[in-house]
Design a protein around this nucleic acid. Structure first.
Length: 285
DNA sequence: TGCCAGGCCTTCC
DNA sequence: GGAAGGCATGGC
């Protein structure tokens, strides 16, 4: 089934799907192919038009359309957002122009939780590989047009693994965190649905109860899965970017940077973070 | 070989 | 409560 959305702009597919917020997308013959929840998607964008091919499933057309609009945040006016941010923060002009069309996806909390546990002290290419092995090994197959794809494994599928078993994914020291996180979610000790209702600070407190989740990983989960746009996850790139732009290159600690960003960017901190990450990381690769 | 990657945990003051 | 080390793995 093919769905076409016109008048969508700006939209930078590569920035969105290959920019370090989602890890399961692959570029294939000029379009991006990936698995979201239990669906196969192939996405293409040109001339202000977004085309999304989805495998046949039990869901209705209306459900598919709602799902796509929700996942890609199509209801938001990013053109105005970029204009406002550029006007209000001229020092970010280059980063926003460079990353124009970047968007923040609305991803599944469970998948985002595990993905960002894996992201700790890791590189994006390697994170993708580990997640792919995790899905192939413990996810469910989806057959489409002669190829087999795999869903992201459920909490149940991961909660009973031993550290030795999960080490086949090459996840390294994070294996024990993944298993423990799965146990906590599966048993209900952590309720991922409840996080939605909390404000960002309380949500961080709740998430960092999970081993392998610190302030940065929690920030990513809240931004990419819970649409908490005042979240400002600070990794090595964001730290450098903020120090360079706002502190004349002087070193600041993480907490200082978060507090600064919250105050300066407020409810739009997450978007700013995404433009900065894409721009500063892109400069070095 | 050494250093770094969308950091976190433990230990030690 | 803040500063250091350690940590699996892969790429350069």
């Amino acid at each position: 089934m093919l769905y076409v959305f016109e008048n969508i702009r700006p939209f930078n597919l590569k920035a969105v799907l290959d920019g370090g917020q989602a890890f399961r997308w692959k570029e294939e013959n000029g379009r991006f192919v990936g698995i979201v929840k239990n669906r196969f998607l192939a996405v293409d964008y040109s001339e202000n038009t977004l085309s999304v091919e989805i495998n046949e499933s039990s869901s209705s057309k209306e459900e598919d359309i709602r799902f796509i609009m929700d996942y890609f945040d199509l209801d938001r006016d990013y053109l105005t957002l970029e204009e406002e941010l550029t006007k209000e923060y001229p020092e970010l002009k280059k980063a926003i122009e460079d990353g124009s069309g970047n968007r923040i996806l609305h991803q599944d909390p469970w998948e985002t939780l595990i993905s960002f546990i894996i992201s700790a002290n890791n590189s994006i290419p390697n994170i993708k590989k580990v997640i792919e092995r995790l899905c192939e090994k413990y996810g469910s197959p989806i057959d489409y047009k002669g190829k087999t794809y795999y869903t992201f494994p459920s909490p149940d599928a991961l909660s009973n693994l031993s550290e030795e078993e999960i080490s086949c994914t090459r996840c390294g020291f994070r294996g024990k965190y993944i298993i423990k996180a799965a146990k906590m979610v599966q048993s209900g000790e952590v309720d991922l649905r409840k996080i939605e209702k909390l404000d960002t600070k309380d949500a961080v407190k709740e998430l960092i109860k999970i081993p392998g989740v610190g302030v940065k990983v929690a920030g990513c989960i809240l931004l990419f899965a819970y649409r908490k746009y005042d979240s400002f996850p600070v990794d090595v790139w964001i730290k450098r970017a903020v120090e360079e732009i706002y502190f004349d290159g002087c070193q600041k600690n993480i907490k200082e940077i978060i507090d600064f960003a919250r105050k300066k960017f407020g409810e739009r901190a997450g978007f700013v973070q995404q433009y900065l990450f894409y721009y500063f990381r892109g400069k070095s690769i």
